[in-house]
Nucleic acid binder design. Structure first.
Lengths: 227, 227
DNA sequence: TGATGTGAAGCGGTTCACAGCC
DNA sequence: GGCTGTGAACCGCTTCACATCA
């Protein structure tokens, strides 16, 4: 297995494992087996072993994994040993809320700058972070060494903003706009689509057996015109 | 295929299809083929047909789908024809930002109440929405007919809050806290884990070939202790 | 002995390809 | 002729089960 063909499902789980290990370390544990981790955090032990084995042989047979050692490896693998500099584009409610989201710092991300197109907002500060004109993104990106952009703009502007930030050399983008974006080249986009999540909840509530147990008409389950 | 065994991947795509159809309708189109949809929005035509066919025979052979008709079906299937009433728990930055997130209204969700444990916040209003004491969740939930809870609280409180809201009868929960929650019974939880998304971006930037093309040492790709 | 690392089996979702229908 | 609806093939991820090794 080549390291560049690892699925995102695997890397997402690495984040989860790291959290679990942090918790165990805080409790004073020194080692843990894949089975122990799985039991405690409702995971699958074989999957843990397989995920870790993609990156190296971190375990000791008969013992398990040394927690501190494995934490260091995962931190390195996930790139959490380096600082990242974030630009948030869109200084509306969501953008400004994200500007002091404590989760950023937790993962070695620093919000370095906000951007907006609204002249009234430019120059204001959210905490320590100044709002700049999106037109000046490229120079600010260089100055602050931005390597991650968060898109918190209305859907209709998202594609344009994406092109703006990728042209400035940003390779990692977190998109909150509810539309699929198309990027050229080697750019990673993570979509956080709250609309889809909401509608998924709505589907769950609406579907037969969703909200009110099984007391909806069962023959409403499938609409069939013929057959 | 029973309607209750449909994967979440499918229902998520239904949301996407509905968006696409709304866009086409706004442009004045009347019908569209699965192939047409796929081409325009970078989807797979077979998958569109299969997803839709789980719920009925909405298409017409030789023609395609009538856009308005299909929109109505999808709206019904996703439960977007009924109003939902949302409680946001946690009146911090994120919770208050979500309180006037326009995406809620778009999907027929109304934010009816905010909740917090901080006495200083209780009684304040964010827009039209009042902040209540989380201790009074059950009665407020009944009064406002809350059917969806959004958890925007620190990770260490999330499980307790979850139990509080599910005991009040809430069956659909959107969780922003970066920990996996365990619910009893027939409760749907949607996790929006920004930490995992961020760390996924971090992984992408850190991995060989991620940020700087292919100019990192190739032999750093896989750490192998032996073999 | 006890737990890892891993080939093989199992499973679910996606894509193909075409019969069936308008 | 054109496009849907769908069985079958395909593919990738998960889980199993065990050889391997401390």
């Amino acid at each position: 297995m080549k390291v560049d063909k690892i699925s995102e499902l695997t890397t997402n789980r690495l984040s989860v494992y790291l959290r679990c290990l942090n918790e165990l370390a805080a409790q004073g544990s020194k080692t843990v087996s894949s089975e122990g981790l799985a039991k405690q955090f409702h995971l699958n032990s074989a999957q843990i072993r397989k995920d870790l084995a993609y990156f190296g042989e971190f375990g000791v047979r008969g013992v398990g994994y040394y927690i501190d050692d494995l934490r260091k490896h995962l931190t390195k693998i996930l790139g959490l040993d380096r600082q990242h500099s974030v630009a948030i584009v869109g200084a509306g409610r969501l953008g400004t809320a994200l500007a002091d989201y404590y989760g950023f710092a937790q993962s070695n991300f620093t919000v370095a700058a906000l951007f907006d197109a609204d002249a009234k907002k430019i120059g204001q500060k959210i905490g320590d972070v100044e709002i700049f004109d999106i037109k000046n993104f490229a120079e600010a990106a260089e100055k602050y060494k931005i390597d991650v952009a968060v898109l918190a703009v209305p859907a209709e502007y998202a594609q344009d903003v994406l092109e703006c930030v990728t042209e400035a050399g940003v390779k990692a983008v977190m998109n909150f706009a509810p539309i699929p974006l198309r990027a050229k080249g080697d750019v990673k986009i993570k979509n956080v689509d709250l609309t889809i999540s909401l509608e998924s909840l709505s589907y769950f509530l609406a579907k037969p057996g969703g909200k009110n147990g099984k007391n909806l008409k069962p023959d409403a389950a499938k609409i069939r015109i013929k057959k």
